[in-house]
Design a protein around this nucleic acid. Structure first.
Lengths: 125, 125
DNA sequence: CAGTATCCTTGGGGATACTG
DNA sequence: CAGTATCCCCAAGGATACTG
C-alpha cells in the first residue's frame, strides 16, 4: 500500500463562508449579551443599557442596529412623549439563540477547567 | 392585582461570566477557523497556514498559543531536522467543537435569509 | 427617553525581515 | 519548517457633550 492522500478542508475567505459572514458578526464584544438579554422578552433601550453592564450608549445603539440589520431584532417606536422604543427578537433571532445557548452552557460547564489550563500554561511559560 | 415586577437577568462583567470569559476568547477572527481545521486530525503549522486562507504567520502563531493556553489544543514538537510541529485538539477542544458546529450549521441554513435582511435594511436606510 | 455627533485611545491584526 | 521581532495602520470601542 502506498501513502494515502487525505483531502482536507480548506477555509476560504469568500462571501459564502458562514463562519466569516454570520458567526463573525455576533462574535463582537456585545452582540451575544444583548441577544441573551432579549430572550426574556422585548425590552427598552435604557433598560437594556442597565442590564448589559458596562456597555456604552454608543455601542448599544450601534450593536442593536447591526442586529436589526442582520434580521435578529426588530425596533419598534411608540410615539409617546417621551418616546418609547422597544427591541424584540425576531423568529430568526430566537432561532439563533438556541445554538448560542448550547455554546454558553458548554462554556459554563468547562469554565473551571479552562481557568486551570490558563494557570498551568502561564506557570510553565 | 397590582403591576407585576418581572425580575430580569443582568449581565455583569465579572470573571464568572462564561460569555465574557470563554466565548469571547474564541470570538476573534481566526480561532474558530483553526479549531475546525483541526477537527479532521492533527496538523502541522504550515499545512494549517495554507488551509486557513488569508491568515498571517503571526496570527496563526498567536492564535494557536491562545488556543493552547485555553486548553483546546496541544502542541507537539518532533525534534527532526527541520523541526516538525503538530497541533491537535484536546478532548476539551473536541468538546467545544460540537456546540460550535451547531452554530455554524445554523449559520449555513440561515445565511440567505440574513443576506436578504441586510439588503432590505440597507435599502430602507 | 433614546438617541447623535465628536474626539480620542487601544490593541487586533497585516506586512516584512530575520533565525534556530 | 516553524517560528520571532518590528513596524505600522485601522477600526472597535470608550468618554463626553448635545438634542428631538
Amino acid at each position: 500500500m502506498g501513502t494515502e492522500k487525505v483531502e482536507r478542508r480548506v477555509f476560504n475567505n469568500n462571501d459564502d463562508c458562514p463562519i466569516r459572514n454570520v458567526v463573525a458578526q455576533i462574535g463582537d464584544k456585545w452582540s451575544m449579551l444583548i441577544l441573551f438579554s432579549l430572550v426574556e422578552g422585548p425590552d427598552r433601550f435604557n433598560a437594556l443599557k442597565s442590564r448589559v453592564v458596562g456597555i456604552s450608549q454608543r455601542m448599544l445603539t450601534q450593536t442593536l442596529r447591526d442586529l436589526e440589520r442582520e434580521g435578529y431584532v426588530t425596533r419598534t417606536v411608540y410615539p409617546e412623549v417621551p418616546v418609547k422604543v422597544e427591541y424584540e427578537l425576531t423568529e430568526m433571532g430566537r432561532g439563533l439563540v438556541k445554538p448560542l445557548y448550547e455554546l454558553v452552557s458548554w462554556a459554563q460547564v468547562n469554565h473551571n477547567e479552562i481557568k486551570r489550563s490558563r494557570k498551568a500554561y502561564d506557570n510553565r511559560n
